[in-house]
Nucleic acid binder design. Structure first.
Lengths: 144, 144
DNA sequence: CCTCTAAATAGAAATGATTTCGTTTTAAAA
DNA sequence: TTTTAAAACGAAATCATTTCTATTTAGAGG
């Protein structure tokens, strides 16, 4: 496990520091997305010193490397999710319990091509995310 | 025009105040999305007093009523766009000149239904937005 | 194993977009 | 008109996120 994460970091051109490994392990163990501060609160007990800016910085770097996924949340705060699915795909995120479920790739690539051709522009990225309540939360009557 | 916007506000259960009308007119005249502060800077000359919080509040309310569309921007600041297309659809936003173009509805509704059925959850909303450079900006070699 | 250096981290402080709050003004219903 | 609930003011607060400089460390190369 440690090995696997170290390899991921190396592949991303990042040093395999204990703090980065801890962030990855913690996020992988979570079933859902987490905020920088939550991760920091959990992890700071495991290290003599661990600054909140370090957590922010690492999450951002890991997200840029594609190791983590950023969640777009209505409250506009940062949340990250560890997703091991290497295929291009999208997510259904539960606004209540924060579980994240993969959704199969829809025809968005075709749409991108069509938009490029029709408007002469260039599509650089897309956001596709479904928000809602997962089965468990819907059953329990949770609110978003 | 004034009439039309006043009617829209009334339909949304909001008072047709001069400031709200001015916000709508300005945003409709724009070809792209704008930030609260930009709108405020433009509009404050037209009123004896116009507070930035008022602009924020109105944009948020108008967005909740569906009169305006919120743009999801990588820099995580708020931007709003006036879209008169009443059909459900999505947007291609230019990260350089801020132009917004409608994109035809893709099969996302079917995807929503599928996710609901497969996972037993409830999809409350979705985000689908293409980011990129419009034809003009791409041609000019603009960068995002 | 050491040594060295660029990368990573600490932590306090700054930032700045956005929101809150108590008061004043106003749109529009009666 | 009169009335009043909604809207706006604007100074101040909030608070997630970022910056900055000094210190520490991972890991490449000997």
């Amino acid at each position: 496990m440690e090995q696997r994460h170290a390899a991921v970091l190396k592949a991303a051109g990042m040093k395999a520091t204990p703090k980065r490994l801890a962030i990855l392990e913690l996020l992988e163990a979570e079933s859902g997305y987490a905020s920088p501060e939550e991760l920091w609160k959990t992890l700071k007990g495991r290290f003599d010193r661990l600054g909140l800016p370090t957590v922010y910085r690492n999450l951002e770097e890991l997200s840029e490397s594609g190791v983590l996924t950023k969640v777009i949340h209505p409250n506009r705060q940062l949340y990250y999710y560890f997703c091991s699915n290497p295929e291009h795909h999208h997510h259904f995120v539960c606004l209540s319990c924060r579980k994240v479920e993969d959704i199969p790739s829809c025809g968005i690539e075709a749409l991108e091509r069509e938009v490029s051709i029709r408007n002469g522009g260039k599509v650089l990225s897309h956001i596709l995310q479904l928000n809602g309540l997962c089965g468990g939360c819907a059953k329990k009557g949770e609110k978003a």
